[in-house]
């Protein structure tokens, strides 16, 4: 670890991946709170590196100045991570809590299997956004690719733009809200009534992301599981 990282009581800390190894960054982040009280971390020159800022279990604010590769902020538990660029596959995968904000676009499997926290993507997200999601809230201001929320178990996926093919295929209990067009719905995913309670839920999630009032919640449609595949039935065999 560099001298800066060990300096006690530093309020701000800068880590330049152009000349400091990724291993040192992640190790320092894992020790945050023990070896440093720095709460605001600036990561420079990520240059598409994979596994940047993964496994953080402290209430840090991390600002990444550029594009990241796969699995940025993977398994995040408490941190607020802002990516000033695009994110590769599996951003915030398996996140447990905290807030991850992608200022650009996100690749495939954004927020995959995440259990909690919030993932906000200002641009578009690729295929399989929210795949196997388990409680996370994902907000995509742009559009999402095909097979999004595949086997989504819990949490909400909120999309300001359009959704690609097979949205919510084999969906469990995740709640999907899409403002634009849905190219097609996957097996067992249906459009459901958007009642007041759902509008309230949507408004609450948007407020939590600091987006209150930016869109009209009544413009969204709600999609969820028809729950027809929950127990195997021979008459549904075509859907399996």
């Amino acid at each position: 670890m560099n001298a800066q990282a060990t300096a006690p009581l530093a309020a701000d800390l800068t880590f330049d991946l152009a000349d400091q190894p990724l291993r040192d960054l992640n190790a320092a982040l894992h020790k945050a709170g023990v070896e440093t009280n720095a709460r605001r971390w600036h990561v420079l020159n990520p240059n598409g590196r994979h596994a940047v800022a993964v496994g953080i279990n402290a209430p840090l604010e991390i600002e990444i100045a550029g594009h990241v590769g796969y699995y940025c902020a993977g398994m995040n538990q408490q941190a607020r991570v802002t990516i000033q660029g695009n994110a590769g596959v599996g951003v915030a995968e398996n996140m447990m809590g905290g807030f991850v904000h992608v200022k650009g676009d996100a690749s495939q499997a954004a927020g995959a299997t995440a259990h909690g926290g919030m993932l906000l993507i200002d641009g578009n997200a690729g295929a399989r956004c929210g795949i196997s999601m388990k409680g996370v809230d994902i907000i995509v201001k742009g559009s999402i690719g095909h097979m999004s929320a595949f086997m989504g178990q819990a949490g909400s996926l909120i999309v300001f733009g359009d959704a690609g093919d097979a949205l919510g295929d084999s969906l469990y209990e995740a709640k999907l809200f899409v403002r634009g067009a849905v190219k097609s719905l996957g097996a067992d995913c249906i459009e459901k009534d958007m009642r007041d309670e759902h509008k309230a839920l949507l408004a609450e999630k948007l407020a939590a992301a600091g987006l209150a009032g930016t869109v009209d919640v009544s413009e969204f449609k709600r999609y969820g599981s028809a729950r027809r595949l929950y127990n195997f039935h021979i008459d549904n065999v075509d859907a399996y």
Partner: peptide, 27 residues
């Protein structure tokens, strides 16, 4: 349960996934 991993496909991705798990757990 799914038969494919949700966030990687193929051996090149697996290498990146392994790197992530190592970084997560400090090698």
């Amino acid at each position: 349960s799914a038969c494919r991993h949700p966030d990687w496909t193929g051996p090149d991705d697996l290498e990146i996934k392994i790197e992530e798990l190592r970084e997560l757990t400090d090698w």
